[in-house]
Amino acid sequence: MSADTPAPAAPGKRPRGRRLRRWLRGPLTTNTLTSMVAAVVFIALAAVIALAPVPFVSWAPGRTVDLAGNNSAGQPMITVQGLPTTPLNGHLRMTTVSVTRVDSFVSLPESVLSYWLPKRDVLPREVVYPRSKSTEQVKSEEVAMMDNSQRAAVVAALRAAGQPVLELPMVVSVVVSGPANGKLMPGDLITEVDDVAVQTVDDVRNRIRRHQVGESVVFTVERDGAPVDVTIQTAPGPKEKAVPYVGISLDLGHKYQAKVSYGIDPNIVGPSAGLVFALAIYDLVTENDLLAGMNVAGTGSISADGTVSPIGGIQEKVAGAEKAGAKVFLVPAQNCQDVQGLRTKLDLVKVSTLREAISSLQKIKQNNSEGVPRC
Rank of each mutant, 00 (worst) to 15 (best):
V308N: 08
A60N: 11
A292Y: 04
D103S: 14
L291G: 09
I302M: 00
Q366M: 14
F105P: 06
A226Q: 15
G26I: 08
S173D: 06
A292P: 07
T86W: 09
D347N: 13
E356L: 03
G371T: 07
N71H: 02
V80R: 03
F56M: 03
V40R: 03
T135E: 15
V106K: 08
S309A: 15
P76Q: 07
S98H: 08
R205G: 04
E356A: 07
L342V: 14
K133H: 06
K363P: 10
A297G: 10
V193W: 01
K13W: 13
A292W: 06
P332R: 07
G74H: 08
I268E: 00
G74M: 12
Y256M: 12
K13C: 08
L83S: 02
V80K: 09
E192M: 08
K133S: 12
N89F: 11
L275P: 06
K139I: 14
R63E: 15
G293N: 00
V296F: 00
N89R: 11
N31H: 13
I302A: 10
P76F: 12
L51A: 12
V97G: 03
R16I: 14
I49Q: 06
L158F: 04
R355K: 13
P244A: 12
V193K: 01
V339L: 06
D188I: 02
F329S: 00
Q233I: 07
C336T: 04
D305V: 03
R223L: 14
G325W: 11
S369P: 00
E141R: 02
G312C: 10
L252I: 14
K350G: 08
K259N: 08
L113C: 05
H91F: 03
M77Q: 13
T34V: 14
N267I: 10
P164D: 10
V41K: 10
V54W: 04
E356Y: 09
D4H: 11
F105L: 12
K255C: 06
A180F: 07
R207D: 05
N288L: 11
V176T: 15
P186R: 07
A280N: 08
K241T: 10
F219L: 04
A156P: 01
P27L: 05
G178T: 05
P87H: 03
K119V: 01
V269W: 00
T95M: 11
Q337L: 11
P332Q: 06
A68M: 07
P61H: 09
L67P: 04
R25L: 12
E126C: 02
T307E: 11
N89S: 15
S104A: 13
I49H: 09
I190F: 00
E136H: 09
I208Q: 00
K350T: 13
V57F: 01
K241N: 03
C375Q: 00
I190H: 02
G62A: 05
G178Q: 09
A144Q: 09
V218L: 15
Q233F: 07
V106P: 02
V331W: 01
W23Y: 09
V198M: 01
V328C: 06
V37S: 10
V308E: 05
K139H: 02
T135M: 13
R209W: 13
V176P: 02
